[in-house]
Design a binder for these strands. Sequence first.
RNA 1: GCCGGUGUAGCUCAGUUGGCAGAGCAGCGCACUCGUAAUGCGCAGGUCUCCAGUUCAAGUCUGGACACCGGCUCCA
Length: 632
Amino acid sequence: MIELNAPDQKSVRLESATAGEALEKLGLRGGALAAMVNGKAVDLYRPLTESGSIEPIGPDSEEGLDILRHSAAHLMAQAVAEMYPGTRFGVGPAIRDGFYYDMEIPGGITEEDLPKIEKEMRRIAKRAIPVERREMSKEEALAYFREKDDPYKAEIISELEEEKVSLYFQGNYADLCRGPHVPNTSYVRHFKLLSVAGAYWRGDEKNIMLTRVYGTAFGNEEALEAYIRRMEEAKSRDHRRLGKELDLFSIQAEGPGFPFFHPRGMVILNGLMDFWRKEHTKRGYCEIRTPLILDRSLWIRSGHWDHYRENMYFTEIDEQPFAIKPMNCPGGMLVYKSQIRSYRDLPMRVAELGIVHRHERSGVLHGLMRVRCFTQDDAHLYCRPEQVKDEIIGIMDLCRYIYSDVFGFKYTMELSTRPENSMGSEEQWDIAESALKQALEESGAEYRLNPGDGAFYGPKIDFHLEDCIGRTWQCGTIQLDFQMPEKFDLTYIGADGKEHRPVMLHRTILGSLERFFGILIENFAGAFPYWIAPVQVRILPVSGDFVDYAKETAQKLRAKGIRVEIDERDEKLGKKIRDAQTQKIPYMAVVGEKEMQSGTIAPRERSRGDLGSMPLEEFLEVLAGEFNPLKS
RNA sequence: GCCGGUGUAGCUCAGUUGGCAGAGCAGCGCACUCGUAAUGCGCAGGUCUCCAGUUCAAGUCUGGACACCGGCUCCA
């Protein structure tokens, strides 16, 4: 006899039952995909063996969605297995927003085949084929998949530690899987196949490339449609599209990965830099600029030759080998070394908006998000060991200000530790890692650990921004570096009159100005905040008779440093408003007979609409009231 | 770099089985002198990404290069 308690206090005593039967008795079966029994997700068909808690898992929970999507992946695999005999299967997990399955399909498929596969999936789903779990020994499972000529499954099984594995059967199809799954295929109803892509077996580029089909599934049609709308929304915000439409930047065939910034884009880039400089000056930073091209010996000394050569560009000057800088630090080292430093000089906070070039593989380039030439908002902080923690906390505070206060992003932090291809002793790494950890913990902020993902010269804290439609982007980073000061023999004279080794921090906040610009475009959907908008006010004369008055008004606004333009075209007002609106200009100022006579203007804000006529002075006050971190 | 897809006017895209290269928007001109999200008419605009090949004939078929798009790997 076992006793099961539901979350709503109800309980049942049963002689023997499956999870599904128990839920049924408790009146909780409706809509459940699986059950949570004593904190473990199990199939509804699973016989219960011990007393404890039980609750249903529905498609509205995260676990339920995962189960549903995983089952959708199996359903797709079953369809493909039937339609393309000889297909071998890799892995097919649920992921954020959907699922995928990696397969080796004879003859391959393209996106045009997806509707056919979807159709077959719906056919199978309708038949409500039971999904059954069977446990077996590894040997049995191996024999099963070997017989089916499924070497990828066999490979996974042979590497599993457990003695027993579980397989899920639905009709002729079976898959190695921990489960749980939906009771039968009819539970998977609201799904869509999205795209076809290549993916290396086990994510290793030395392995064969399998065909990956992405799809998604939801508990109801509305959620599926909402997801599709969200994807369309993301597409309409694509910075490459908006960059073209708003004439911000372009990328030309002559410079793959090397963006061209147009006048309007430059306003934003310059705005970012002005704001950034102002904030850094406030916080005790100085600024330097180091050369783009430096002698190869410098890069050998810094370790980049050994660790980063693949990503570097090289050139020659007077038959001497030089390299284009992929990072700013070695140049910065030379500035530090240009004179003797005292402990009184520390901490030194040396910023550099440094342009770096990195050879990125052709397939990874992506608008402004992934380029071959970009501007890092870099800084190197040199300090005494006891200053490290406070400096890190200071950087974290600057990040908070810029990310949250100025741009309104949510963000998370991540601590990355020693990677495989690293320089330096274990002891140094331990000290560096614990320094970062300590600063994080003292700040009280939450963070994630990402083992083995540090830079080759030191551990790091990364900052991930979340944009307004939930995507995340890595921007800022703080990296502790004990290597560079050693390699370049950096010193300062201590109070004791002896030479000491400074600790060095690398850090960026925006990361790459280019990428950050791209993120801003997508986050704001091109409707930039007033302070950084390329054009802040567009004056719209009602007809040609008012162009002179428009010009006068524009002059007055420009004198106040406001970026203004006039729409002088021989078009109707409605057309001019429409065009200014699609250009996402924050303010329009309509001028016609009435305004000219009374010396006023009629402003219109892009999201609030007509603000009514007002004297220019009043409009200037409205503008002065806009958020502007350049002025504070 | 790898897998798959795409490349036609400034932009977005049509273009039948190989047979004279099209539309909308943008641009320019003319008319209208206009009041809060598209006034009308007209004109101009193309080495159909590039290089080879097949063919009487290639935007269309074949091969290669380049670029872009979706992913993988990598990454700010």
